[in-house]
């Protein structure tokens, strides 16, 4: 599989994503958004960073860029698409996943390791785990608080589209373990179909053993 990692002006986790994917044996290339996706694209990562300087709202500008129409078309064809951090914000702004990621309850940028509980192991992104597994993966964001209307949240839960919730080391979902005030402690979710996923934590920063954490490998192995 060849994964296109879409680079916008201000993306800064694009190379990390390529290195992590290559470590897992996946061919991956950075694609400048204005160049469009190569014809052999079989997977897409929208990486983290600060596309368009987070102007207006994080992800709002990139979501309107032409390359996202191509990403959406591939997603409709069943191609796996993962948005991480700023990529998650872009995915929600582009309407590929419901809800929005907005200012952390702390009003601060938070860069720390958090625990995630696997809520649904029956997706390509979580097939490497079991439901209830607790992962340790870093976050690095100022706008990661998941907000969604009540009805849409109920639908999300009823359709089993929550991938991960923030939890403590024992897997308990508590207010203290919720780093940013996300609704339902949601850290990651899928689109209408489970080939599209977005998440605020960084699996690509928890893949290479030399970085000291490898719990994120399972997410990226969806592309393997």
């Amino acid at each position: 599989m060849t994964v296109s990692v879409v680079r916008f002006g201000g993306s800064n986790c694009d190379r990390d994503a390529v290195r992590a994917l290559e470590y897992l044996g996946v061919d991956a290339d950075i694609v400048w958004h204005e160049d469009g996706l190569p014809a052999d694209t079989e997977g897409v990562v929208v990486p983290g960073g600060f596309s368009y300087g987070d102007y207006l709202r994080a992800g709002a500008m990139a979501a309107q860029s032409p390359v996202m129409d191509e990403v959406r078309a591939l997603a409709d064809d069943g191609v796996p698409v993962l948005g991480v951090c700023n990529g998650a914000q872009i995915g929600c702004e582009a309407g590929m996943t419901p809800g929005a990621f907005t200012t952390n309850a702390s009003a601060r940028f938070q860069c720390e390791r958090v625990h995630l509980r696997v809520e649904n192991a029956d997706t390509p992104w979580t097939a490497a785990y079991s439901e209830g597994d607790v992962l340790e993966v870093p976050i690095a964001h100022g706008e990661g608080r998941f907000e969604i209307g009540e009805d849409a949240y109920d639908d999300l839960v009823a359709d089993d589209r929550v991938l991960f919730r923030y939890c403590d080391a024992d897997g308990e979902v508590t207010d203290e373990a919720n780093p940013n005030g996300s609704t339902g402690a949601v850290a990651g979710l899928t689109g209408d179909r489970d080939n599209v996923a977005v998440m605020m934590p960084h699996p690509e920063r928890a893949t290479l053993p030399e970085l000291g954490a490898t719990d994120g490998q399972g997410v990226l192995s969806a592309f393997a």
Partner: peptide
């Protein structure tokens, strides 16, 4: 509708 506001929030 298209850009300036996000209807979710």
């Amino acid at each position: 509708e298209r850009l300036l506001a996000n209807p979710t929030i």
